[in-house]
Structure formats: C-alpha cells, structure tokens
C-alpha cells in the first residue's frame, strides 16, 4: 500500500491560474494562504492586488475585467460574509465571470464542524445560487479550471472552496 499525497501545494494552484492566463489575484490573506503568498510574490505573470476588506475584491475585479484583464479573487470564507453586497451588486447583478478562491476555515471531514464560518458558507452560496467546487489536495486543483470555465460559460461568479491548509 502506498502513501497517498493529500496536501494541496500552492504551486498546484498557481499552475492552474497560469494555465488559465489569470492576470491578477485580488486578495486578502489569511493564515491558511501564507505559503501561497510567498509563491505569488515571486510569480511575475500574476499581479497581486491586496485589499483592506474583502468586499473590495469583487469591485476591483470588476474594473479589471471591464479593462480586459482576467482577475481572480482569493479570500477566506469569513470574507464572503462581509462581501455580500459586492457579490450581489458587482458580481451576480452584472454577470461578472469571477472565480473566487475561498479559504474554507473550519472545514473538516472528521468529527463535528464547530466553526460557524464553515457551517454557514455552503448555505450562503446556495442562497445566492453560486456554484462551487471543493479542493483539498493537488489532485483536486484541476477543479479551478472547471470553475473558470463555468464562470465564463454562465457569466456568473463561481466559488472554489479551499478545504485544507496549503502545504509548504
């Protein structure tokens, strides 16, 4: 029996972003994405746009999109709650094909999920009619491409829930 790799490496995510010609990562970092930050800062093909509050990300992405770029948003699930009006007004209402990579704080396949940030997030996405994918390992990273394809085909925001901390 072999040991299966169950870590999600930032390089796998970045490779997906580059494959899809993503131009900008609009984001507010959290502890789960520190390794991602280190990698992104050394990636010349991706321009990082850090924000002070998550609701800014969808609006900045809207401007980038109208200006001809291909942005992606990277925030934590807690930020989705904060950003509701931006997702509504500058995501859903204007048909922005935006992929939101969302850190799934509190998510676990084992035992009780006690963190309300994890317990509520899928319900919120369902309520808004936002389709989403779950990624937990490198094998799942290809779902980012699926999300990008779906966002562009449906002209709607699509979420990718990052259900594990990034490995180094």
């Amino acid at each position: 029996m072999t040991t299966q790799e169950v870590i999600l490496h930032p390089a796998s995510v970045v490779a997906e972003l580059k494959k899809n010609k993503i131009s900008h990562v609009v984001w507010l970092p959290d502890s789960e994405t520190n390794f991602m930050y280190q990698l992104l800062t050394n990636e010349p093909d991706l321009d990082l746009v850090p924000v002070c509050r998550e609701g800014e990300t969808m609006a900045i992405a809207a401007g980038l999109w109208v200006g001809g770029k291909r942005p992606i948003v990277l925030i934590q699930n807690t930020g989705i709650f904060e950003a509701g009006d931006s997702i509504r007004g500058l995501g859903l209402d204007v048909n922005q094909p935006l992929v939101m990579l969302v850190g799934y704080r509190g998510w676990s396949r084992h035992g009780l999920t006690t963190d309300s940030a994890a317990r509520f997030i899928e319900h919120i996405l369902h309520a808004w009619g936002i389709s989403y994918y779950l990624i937990e390992t490198d094998d799942d990273a290809g779902r980012i491409s699926l999300a990008i394809e779906e966002a562009e085909r449906t002209a709607k925001p699509v979420a990718v829930l990052v259900g594990t901390e990034f490995g180094s």
Partner: peptide, 12 residues
C-alpha cells in the same frame, strides 16, 4: 465600491 472599480480599471 466605485473607487475599487476605478482602481481595477486604472490597473487594467
């Protein structure tokens, strides 16, 4: 959020 939209457009 107009200022954020403007930032995105200015960068693009």
């Amino acid at each position: 959020k107009a200022s954020n939209v403007a930032l995105g457009l200015a960068l693009a």
